[in-house]
């Protein structure tokens, strides 16, 4: 495996060296300008510095693209039955398009800027799933006072969700919709009502909304509530679940991309283990939530 990773590591090293060298050239340019009298040839340091930084960034992105398309595609499809990883594809932001639109979960806020990539789908223990990285930003206006005392308004995009969204086939048929949310709230035209379940701990951790109270109790059995609490414990403060049209949607805010390479971090067995852990988490979800116990559905 290490042998397969070596070419990517080599290119990534070059990219990082280029970036650091470029940065150093720019620092030298600044130091020369501050410490000595200005001379035209100092600009050479700046130009070379900028070129090296651009080279570093470009090579890093190219390496990442190649790594995902060539290595991760095969690696992930080997780990998951019928698994397919498509780095340049993601969930849609428009209803009716394939793959699914991310707002189908009914708790993710409409974004002003929307990015989705690293689409992964497959079958785990007979359960179909789809997942994708999603990065959502909203436009905010910030007012501030400049040095001359004038009040100004600044436009900026603020990230409010960066993580992974999953859709699983659910093991029970049910009417109505249920949302189990920690940091989100319902975002739908449906009339959701808050419901308290019998578990005090669960009610403290999550807010449960439903269009049909009975369905909330039907889906959220005591065992299932415990499993959701366990998932939450592993990812505190960052999860949201919804149960709609016999599907389970799960959003996990991580504030980072799942499969992207990280600068100055080696592509080695440790890195592969982190990828493996991401897949393992999907297996655990299916197992913990007993999605593979399809006892109430007709054999299909």
């Amino acid at each position: 495996m290490q042998k397969d990773l070596a070419p990517y590591q080599k290119r990534k090293n070059m990219a990082e060296i280029g970036f650091v060298a470029g940065f150093l050239f720019i620092i030298v340019f600044v130091v020369l300008n501050v410490a000595f009298e200005y001379m035209t040839f100092y600009a050479l340091f700046l130009i070379i510095g900028i070129l090296l930084v651009l080279f570093g960034i470009g090579l890093f992105q190219w390496t990442q693209r190649k790594f995902k398309q060539e290595f991760l595609k095969t690696y992930l499809s080997d780990l998951i039955e019928n698994g397919e990883f498509v780095p340049r594809k993601g969930f849609s932001r428009v209803q009716g398009l394939q793959p699914i639109d991310v707002y189908r979960s009914e708790f993710i806020e409409q974004a002003d800027r929307f990015y989705s990539y690293d689409y992964l789908h497959g079958i785990i223990d007979g359960i179909k799933f789809e997942s994708s990285d999603v990065h959502l930003q909203r436009l905010e206006y910030r007012t501030y006072t400049d040095s001359k005392g004038n009040t100004r308004r600044k436009r900026q995009y603020v990230t409010y969700f960066k993580g992974r969204v999953f859709q699983f086939d659910f093991n029970k048929n049910f009417d109505g919709c249920v949302l189990v949310l920690e940091r989100y709230r319902p975002r739908s035209s449906r009339k959701y009502k808050k419901v308290d379940l019998e578990s005090v701990d669960f009610n403290k951790k999550f807010k449960t909304y439903t269009t049909k109270e009975h369905t909330a109790f039907y889906i959220l059995t005591p065992h299932f509530m415990e499993s959701l609490m366990k998932v939450e414990k592993d990812n505190p403060g960052n999860v949201g679940f919804s149960f709609i049209d016999n599907k389970l949607y799960f959003a996990l805010h991580k504030n980072r991309s799942t499969f992207s390479l990280r600068p100055f971090r080696k592509i080695d067995d440790r890195y592969l283990k982190s990828i493996h852990d991401e897949v393992e988490m999907i297996y655990e979800m299916v197992d913990d939530l007993k999605l593979n116990r399809n006892i109430f559905k007709e054999d299909s």
């Binding site: 019998e198 009975h214 109790f217 039907y218 006892i295």
Partner: peptide, 20 residues
């Protein structure tokens, strides 16, 4: 058997909802 399992789940849900 599958139906009775599902009915049993619904009964438990109704019971828990009633008790809550």
């Amino acid at each position: 058997q599958r139906s009775i399992g599902d009915v049993e789940e619904h009964l438990q849900a109704s019971r828990r909802m009633y008790n809550a």
